[in-house]
Design a binder for these strands. Structure first.
Lengths: 178, 178
DNA sequence: TATTGTTATACTCTATAACTATA
DNA sequence: TATAGTTATAGAGTATAACAATA
């Protein structure tokens, strides 16, 4: 807190220099980057903005599409399992499952062995809708990824795959970092 | 729509092969990846889970931290400008600004030339809080990024910087893609 | 009349707990 | 009693429109 005015002016100059560098497209130290959250959040918002109209055209919600995607990998025996697989809550996906079932995109049959559980399966029509939607979503994603060089794109997707499967438990302690 | 059963079985086999390949850590075609949204969403959720406790310890909300970050780059003349800069709405940040001002982290002074506008500035204390919080957030981000190789990490951050500044208007038409 | 900030309202999501039906 | 699914309720977050002050 001592020498405040001086330090503040220094920092201001550094920030200005960083902004200038960014504006002119110069290389800059990675520590001058924005926070990851401040970059990931707008990317997700852009993805949602681009993909929601596509899903709407296929008459499925974001969660509905997520369910169809999960079930296209194979049936699931309980709704709670499915919910956890897509990062949702068992109470939250009920409305989604109701809609998907009413639209004939999934089937929900009580397990004969344990009639509390509901065997969840995608229908042929559900598979068709999911894959048609996915094709358009992939095309939309190409529009985003075209901002990257081919090498950047490959590495970006690979890195994203690694990061997306991490849980808080997977993170190392700060003291174990090099 | 013709030959549905046959194609469906083929696709199922391909999906199984992809899951097997992924499980064994084999290289796989990029087209076999999950949707970007399905990967970006969990990453953002993980970032929020890791960073919210840090911000709470410094007694600022996520939007409060976002405001402090924006103002640490320089003062802003109107609240609407600030709101747009952080991707929010002018009505949405009012409560946040009230809190930050009450905590002495920002100042909100009517512009003498146009007394409708409020000149927004970060205070010394606000700068201190913001930078202390950022230091911890950066440390937390290191824990995430340590899942990547140094080369992956550099390219990932660079790609994220590019993608995070895109707006829907920046996206090329599908027909203009190579 | 247009703009800045504010308030009010409704709407969507989400989280939690209570309930039913099966086991 | 424990579990799977469902429903009910309240809370947070957001969007929209209406409003007061100033230009």
């Amino acid at each position: 807190m001592t020498d405040r005015a001086g330090r503040r002016r220094d920092s201001g100059d550094r920030d200005s220099a960083r902004r200038e560098g960014a504006r002119r497209g110069n290389a800059h130290r990675e520590s001058d980057r924005r926070d990851l959250g401040a970059m990931v959040h707008p990317v997700l918002r852009l993805l949602i903005a681009v993909e929601l109209p596509i899903l709407a055209a296929h008459e499925v919600s974001m969660w509905g599409y997520s369910v169809l995607t999960a079930l296209d990998d194979g049936p699931v025996r309980t709704q709670a399992t499915l919910a956890e697989a897509i990062g949702a809550d068992k109470t939250r996906i009920i409305g989604t499952l109701d809609e998907l079932q009413a639209a004939g995109l999934i089937s929900r049959t009580p397990d004969p062995n344990d009639r509390r559980a509901r065997l969840l399966e995608i229908t042929d029509e559900g598979r068709r809708v999911r894959r048609a939607a996915r094709a358009e979503i992939r095309a939309a994603e190409e529009r985003l990824l075209s901002a990257l060089t081919p090498a950047e794109r490959t590495t970006f997707v690979r890195a994203l795959e690694k990061l997306s499967v991490l849980t808080p438990d997977d993170l190392p302690d700060v003291r174990d970092l090099p």
